[in-house]
Write a protein that binds this DNA or RNA. Structure first.
Lengths: 255, 255
DNA sequence: ACGCTGGCATATGTAGAACATTTCGACAAG
DNA sequence: CTTGTCGAAATGTTCTACATATGCCAGCGT
């Protein structure tokens, strides 16, 4: 074998470790992370590798590098939450502060019925297959709950279901925005697991949403999506009527 | 003054030059850009700098690096248009293909009335000042058209006006999404300059939108925003009723 | 005593060389 | 025709050396 010790895993990944420490609150906005040389020693890496990883955090807007001084953690509001890497870290480790998490969820509640509406107009057969496969995954998970960890798999299918709807809009912006769903979906699932939400009812709401899109009925899809969100969001104490959609939804239902 | 020659420009910036060539269509999806060594020679830089710049393009999703082979331009749909750097390049150089540009505009037409609606609910006095300052800039530009380039300054104020509304939602996602406004606003302005759109009428529509937000009337802000978009979007041959907002707007006006 | 200035220590930024790894194609053996 | 091996070419990684920016503080002058 080669003399490298990389056999275990590719790299310790400084960015990953630092991200975990920052997300867990060990380093808070305004704090300075250890300097490059210390990170080199700690992870047994050269400076180039460390700097490369630090640049990831800079691109994510998480840290700010001050020449000749150090790397400072930036305010949460300055983090680039549209970056796919950031949302991935938010799913793996919980969001650092609940405020950001709640704002993302509020955004989702605002736009997702719209997305469902647009998907009902533009979805192709291929899109419907993707949606259905994700839905079936959610269903099989309900019927046959794995002993070790049922929620883990369920969340993957849940995410895939909603992402498929975003992609069915055939709009590049909506498609790429589907990244920010992951953290809030996981948050909803964790909370709904705590609360006494019937999984069967949730699944039925998802089914209605899927059928509305398949039948090309935008308004039904709009309302069905709202129902899906309301079912789980209520467990978080969030009030749907507070969002703009609350008003337009009522109006839509009158027609 | 400092001894730096930054007055002209900091660096030749390989990323900037390559981006221009890619956006102009000189390199198209599937093509391979010159290899690192050639870029080093062409820009008189070392490999570290070239690779650093190439990584920018990778993060933007514009190119894909294949180990031992080269750097390939990716499909337009894979470009990360949520990246601020990409939208900046789209404003400086035109978007490579009109399809992406149109989809971004469609997204804007979808959500911007919503954003205005939310801004009317959550805007603070500070936000209103920012909106008003941008609006005054647009107005002064109309009264006193600079001889050298009037459209250039006007677009800056126009962008600032809409960005201020996005930030007035006090939602981190909407705020950071304001990046994607820039390309489509510039597109609209260029097109409206060609068409015979009365600047005074456009300004009046913006004023109504501002007043609606100031008066905390979400529904008026919704419709005013639609009027602003419709005024310029019609010049592009885009049909507003095709968007989901078209329906809900009609419903809103009935109340 | 106060304030400015210069230099030293520290930390990040940049340049360049050397070596490792991956990919593809050529070519010969089976 | 298939397959194994070698080698050229390009990207990936590591390391060293030097450049630049920042903060601190002693030293000097007013």
């Amino acid at each position: 074998m080669k003399s490298k010790q990389t056999a275990s895993r590719k790299r310790p990944s400084v960015a990953e470790a630092l991200a975990q420490e920052i997300f867990s609150g060990e380093y808070q906005p305004g704090d300075f992370v250890p300097r490059e040389i210390d990170l080199c020693e700690r992870f047994a890496l050269n400076r180039s590798a460390v700097r490369s990883d630090l640049r990831q955090l800079v691109d994510a807007g998480i840290i700010e590098r001050i020449s000749g001084h150090g790397s400072k953690v930036r305010e949460y509001s300055e983090w680039n939450i549209l970056d796919a890497q950031v949302t991935e870290w938010m799913t793996r480790y919980a969001a650092p502060n609940p405020g950001v998490q709640r704002e993302i969820l509020a955004f989702r509640l605002d736009v997702e019925p719209y997305v469902a509406m647009t998907a009902a107009k533009h979805a192709t057969a291929h899109d419907l297959v993707a949606i259905e496969e994700a839905f079936n995954g959610m269903g099989s998970d309900l019927d046959d709950p794995d002993s070790h960890n049922s929620g883990r798999l369920h969340s993957d299918y849940d995410i895939a279901f909603h992402v498929a709807i975003f992609k069915a809009t055939h709009n590049i912006v909506w498609s790429q925005l589907s990244h920010i769903l992951r953290p809030s979906i996981l948050l909803l699932i964790e909370t709904s697991n705590v609360s006494a939400d019937d999984p069967a009812e949730s699944l039925e709401r998802h089914r209605l949403l899927m059928e509305s899109i398949r039948a090309r009925r935008p308004r039904d899809a709009f309302r069905a999506s709202q129902a899906v969100l309301a079912g789980t969001a209520s467990a978080l104490g969030l009030e749907i009527p507070d969002t703009p959609l609350g008003h337009s939804a009522e109006l839509l239902s009158e027609t």
